[in-house]
Design a protein around this nucleic acid. Structure first.
Lengths: 117, 117
DNA sequence: TATATCGTGTACTATATAGTATACACCCCA
DNA sequence: TGGGGTGTATACTATATAGTACACGATATA
């Protein structure tokens, strides 16, 4: 039971149904790891890859890197850096929002993006 | 040059000026590590301790755990968990906010906390 | 029917993480 | 002057991380 591995396998197989270049071997080749390693990752035989490898894999599969990192139990290092630079500010914000419904957070994101302030 | 180690040493020495129980040995004893290890941490001779040890140290020194974790290049695991649960939402929010001035983020925190929405 | 490709099993590795355990020389003071 | 407390040097360790390298039998292809 590996959420990350299962997801990768599912997406890759789906792509493969349309395009034979999405075999374990070829995908592994393009993202720069051994086929045996990707195979083990997909079957949850080993822990998830490093951030860099996950990002390459996400690009290759056309999936969202942040979502794939989350499935691997990780958080993108650029987000970590932002939090580390202003820990009090971001820690408070995230703890305040963590139990709020999606729509509240989403509203906030839009509010900030649309810059009406 | 270890930001984390320098900070710990400075805070501990300051406490020690008022209270002799803040020696390397005694603090190490209370947070459950070897004195030699705390000494090496303070001098940046080794990498920063684990999250759990940093939190105990922060409590012992009366400092903010999030700030001390940040000095150690880490982010509290409860924040990571919140982000991993809703990666798209939080990734967008943090990237939107990371280049904003403190006062903008602060305003947002207050806005959410005071719940006027 | 040869050969190219496929997924996977096995064995190994280098580096990082997060420390422990012991011993030492120095200083204080009673 | 000797016992307790101080900081630190040295050596070692267990576990995790993030893979590589190679070989094998099955399958598909031409």
């Amino acid at each position: 039971m590996s959420a990350f591995g299962d997801f990768v396998r599912e997406v890759r197989e789906a792509l493969r149904a349309e395009d034979s270049r999405y075999s374990v071997r070829q995908v592994a080749g393009r993202i720069g790891v051994q086929p045996s390693y990707l195979s083990k990752v997909e079957r949850g035989d080993v822990g998830p890859p490093s951030e860099a490898t996950i990002v390459r894999l996400a690009e290759e599969l056309g999936e969202d890197p942040d979502v794939m990192l989350a499935l691997a139990g990780k958080v993108s290092s650029d987000l970590l850096e932002a939090i580390r630079k202003r820990p009090r500010l971001f820690a408070d914000l995230i703890r305040e929002l963590k139990d709020m419904p999606d729509r509240a957070v989403l509203r906030l994101v839009r509010e900030v993006r649309d810059g009406d302030w």
